[in-house]
Design a protein around this nucleic acid. Sequence first.
DNA 1: TTACTTAGTGTAGTCAACACACGAACATGC
DNA 2: GCATGTTCGTGTGTTGACTACACTAAGTAA
Lengths: 235, 235
Amino acid sequence: MPFTYDYPHPAVAADIAVFTLRRGALNVLLIERGEPPHKGAWALPGGFLQPDEELDDCARRELLEETGVDAELLLHFGNFSAPDRDPRERVISVAYLALLPSDELRLEASTDAAQARWFPVDDLPPLAFDHDEILGRALGALSSQARRISPLFALLPGRFTLSQLQGAYEAVIGEDAEKRNFRKMVSALECVRETDDFAHGAHRPARLYEPAAAWINPGRDTGRTSATPPSGARS
Amino acid sequence: MPFTYDYPHPAVAADIAVFTLRRGALNVLLIERGEPPHKGAWALPGGFLQPDEELDDCARRELLEETGVDAELLLHFGNFSAPDRDPRERVISVAYLALLPSDELRLEASTDAAQARWFPVDDLPPLAFDHDEILGRALGALSSQARRISPLFALLPGRFTLSQLQGAYEAVIGEDAEKRNFRKMVSALECVRETDDFAHGAHRPARLYEPAAAWINPGRDTGRTSATPPSGARS
DNA sequence: TTACTTAGTGTAGTCAACACACGAACATGC
DNA sequence: GCATGTTCGTGTGTTGACTACACTAAGTAA
């Protein structure tokens, strides 16, 4: 790294793709821009990095400020750095995805947003800046994450039925799952613990489950650093 | 995203963990810093983003400038943004990993580096800044990537034997593989094509293989966007 | 009491991953 | 040139994982 640096610094912002389930379908939170550029267009929420703030904290703060909720899962999935992606000045976008339980839907448009709204990911309006590209990448990353099941807890209430969990899985992956196989998978992953309570609806009550401890905020797989020692490949 | 932004902009840099194989072992390229801070300490190569440059291009350029080689695989695996990670000023580090064939070892220390050297990843010196954390994350990401086999081509010459490929796999994963199963896996992935030539050594010659087309620079898995249409989960 | 809907479970078949042993081909040294 | 040593390269049987599939259980509502 050079010890002098004469070039102008870019702005750095976090943009967040916030997903939730509404009526069984995956929805993403968009804001309608209240100011130029792209005034009137829909965009992902986001904002600029502050001086003494880590990027992860910036994303969490912006999300809290712009939507009023604190996300349980905030995952960085990419940077977007095209020099002309923002006409005002150079902005490096650090992109995150977040998941919210479907019942926390208190949307509060902030000053610079005309309104905030949920959109089904299958029926999106045109987006400002390069946010369509960012959102596409977010959906891909989300789908990969969901196969580990535990990230889906952030989409559900604290206790949930296995049918709810399967519904979230199907909504995120975009494919149907077979009931018994899904339950076998969840059982094998040992990521839920059954409770003694049941959800009562119009039909047979379903047992409620909760996340097993240590599955909140699961680390990324780090291969070598967390793996058992190699069996002899090292000399 | 707010339309005004009064905070100072951070510097943005790319740091690159460059890996290669030397005598069968995974090595990483480090430079000895020639200037404060951390003068005399070893660090990952890297440098600052220029005004009209994408982050990916910055990483590639810095690597070319500091080591004289053009990397075939440059993969972003994380950002590092602790406010005090660089004592000079705030620097956001965008971290990449790169793979080089083991025979391209023309190291040219640039002006700000006293020297550049390969280190086995099992025997590293103390590193400057937070580069030990960056390198740890790089090793984890590399191990995940290697399971797809095709990224390993960047560690090998243009044509290689299956034993060489297996050696690269084992060095990166950190575990031994079983020969026949490894070959079956490679065969199933259809990522190599056999040639009519053989490598002649001290013993029975081994057939040379080359990467199958379309496996250079493989895209990330994007789930929904590249998957077959869902079978009915969407209404 | 009946009808309806969802909850919840076990098995058989298929496929992929794993462990395993040997003959083939070439270089080298005697 | 012959024997020896080393790596190359292949097939099979076993095991565990994933897939597909159908019924009974339990409650609500009419």
